[in-house]
């Protein structure tokens, strides 16, 4: 009685390039409002680094699987009532410029301005997977930082820190953390339970996370 329930730390490793991370992120934000015993910690990583380190390949590399994903993703988004649109610039985002600049900015924000990490991550995810934006364009990160509430000075600090060696190292460290927990892709989440950390992979394993935290998961469309 009167005892504050112990919170369970849940790390969420993500890269905004991953559409299934977007779905998991949106779902987790809903859960975070309802689940009082979850202490959600957002951890931006570089998916390219995880794939290279584990020898894994993105599911979309196989044409027939990519065709399936083209149907699966809109189905999931529709089921869960989330805005979703395929990104017309995805080839560029995957293979040319990549999400390194974005993920590095998120890494710096996590360290220096943790209060705006969730809103900035949400904004970047939506730009890619709901609004069909090309986030590799100059100025997008600047605009997004401002929108998330950073002052001009803070924004400029974050942007220059993100291309410094420490900024780069920050993202490397977070990526290594994910690898140490056994990640081979994203979204990966780690629930730090009393009997040790439990690593879970995929937007479709939230029912397991719910059961670990003692919550009902009804898979309803507003879960």
């Amino acid at each position: 009685m009167g005892r504050v329930p112990k919170k369970v730390v849940v790390d969420f490793f993500f890269d905004v390039v991953s559409p299934y991370s977007y779905i998991a992120f949106e779902l987790l934000q809903r859960c975070n409002v309802k689940w009082e015993n979850m202490d959600l910690k957002l951890k931006p990583v570089f998916l390219g680094g995880i794939m290279a380190a584990t020898g894994n390949q993105g599911p979309a590399m196989l044409p027939i699987r990519a065709q399936y994903m083209n149907k699966d993703l809109p189905r999931l988004a529709e089921y869960y009532n989330m805005p979703f649109q395929f990104n017309a610039h995805i080839q560029k985002l995957f293979f040319q410029k990549g999400t390194l600049p974005t993920q590095r900015v998120l890494g710096v924000v996590k360290k220096d301005y943790p209060d705006i990490l969730e809103s900035l991550s949400s904004d970047m995810f939506r730009r890619v997977w709901a609004d069909n934006e090309d986030i590799t364009c100059d100025g997008i990160l600047k605009t997004a930082c401002q929108k998330a509430g950073l002052t001009d000075t803070a924004r400029d600090e974050v942007l220059s820190a993100s291309i410094s060696d420490t900024g780069k190292q920050e993202l490397k460290n977070l990526t290594q953390q994910a690898l140490d927990f056994g990640a081979f892709g994203v979204p990966t989440y780690v629930a730090h339970l009393d009997d040790g950390p439990k690593m879970i992979f995929g937007s479709d394993r939230l029912f397991l996370l719910a059961s670990y935290l003692g919550h009902e998961w009804t898979a309803t469309r507003n879960d």
Binding site: T54, L62, R205, L208
Partner: peptide, 23 residues
Amino acid sequence: TGNRPPGLVEAKSKYMTKDLIHV
């Protein structure tokens, strides 16, 4: 289809041995 079993990626295979038991 040219698909490869998921268990061929070592980290994935390690995860699957736990995931299957949990599910």
